[in-house]
């Protein structure tokens, strides 16, 4: 039982648990947390396999940046959005399960029958350039320079694409203060609207404020959460109709 073996089995079990959690969680937020958990475990594995740079990147980029992005989007589309786990496509779940198992079984049997009996380890390769990062740098800015440059173009394009996709064109001229004032007066509610979460059980923006008589005030919610009802157990709430 060397350290490597211990680390492998611990992280392997954890990461599989995380992956399974991702699939079976009803709430997207939970799924995201399970993914982050799996990724950290994978980062540990990378460290143990001599990929210090990759492990760090895994934590910083994946667990940090990418998962943060996921959470941002989750916040936008509704943090409580979750699937009902009832399958709508006929036979999808059954066939999907069979195929997934078959695939996994084939993959595993292929790997075990093909077989690598021993590993060389990257320690020598790391030391040749004075460390893992130097070794990687040597390759990235050497042999894989062209691919590296191309990925930069890809990233730029992706950033532009995301901007174009998410951009909202303004079709009407911006309202003037006078207009806003008039609208607000005519709407019959000249004072500011109540803030969400006031006196409610949660203080998040998607929880309507409670009026003095204890009833929730829909007016307190931002427009995007208008359809969400307040209740103690919000797991049944769906943004989608």
């Amino acid at each position: 039982m060397t350290g490597e073996v211990v680390i492998f089995w611990v992280t392997a079990i954890f990461s599989v648990i995380g992956a399974v959690g991702l699939v079976i969680s009803r709430k997207a937020v939970h799924s995201a947390l399970w993914v982050a958990f799996t990724m950290i475990n994978l980062a540990v594995l990378y460290f143990s396999l001599g990929g210090a740079f990759l492990g760090t990147t895994q934590i910083v980029v994946y667990t940090g940046a990418v998962m943060m992005l996921f959470l941002f989007v989750l916040m936008i589309v509704g943090v409580d959005s979750s699937d009902s786990l009832i399958e709508t496509i006929k036979g999808q779940r059954l066939v999907g399960t069979i195929l997934a198992f078959a695939f996994g079984a084939l993959l595993t049997s292929a790997i075990t029958t093909t077989g690598f009996s021993a590993a060389a380890g990257v320690a020598v390769a790391n030391d040749a350039n004075g460390g893992n990062i130097e070794g990687l740098a040597q390759l990235i800015f050497g042999r894989y320079l062209l691919a590296f440059e191309v990925t930069s173009a890809l990233l730029i394009t992706a950033a532009l694409g995301a901007m174009v996709l998410a951009h909202n064109e303004r079709w009407t001229p911006r309202k003037t203060q006078a207009q806003l004032q008039r609208e607000r007066t005519l709407a019959g509610h000249p004072t500011p609207l109540p803030s969400p979460g006031v006196l409610a059980l949660h203080n998040s923006v998607d929880t309507p404020a409670l009026l003095p008589d204890g009833s929730p005030s829909q007016e307190s919610l931002p427009r995007i959460f208008k359809s969400v009802e307040q209740s103690d157990d919000s797991t049944n709430n769906e943004v989608t109709s």
Binding site: I89, Q92, G96, A102, F103, L106, L107, A110
Partner: peptide
């Protein structure tokens, strides 16, 4: 439905893996 397409793709992958394996063995 994207998931149906994905199912087909996985089916294809299984098929290819199967063929590769059978040819090898």
């Amino acid at each position: 439905l994207v998931r149906s397409y994905a199912l087909t793709m996985v089916g294809g992958a299984v098929l290819i893996a199967l063929v590769l394996l059978l040819v090898r063995l």
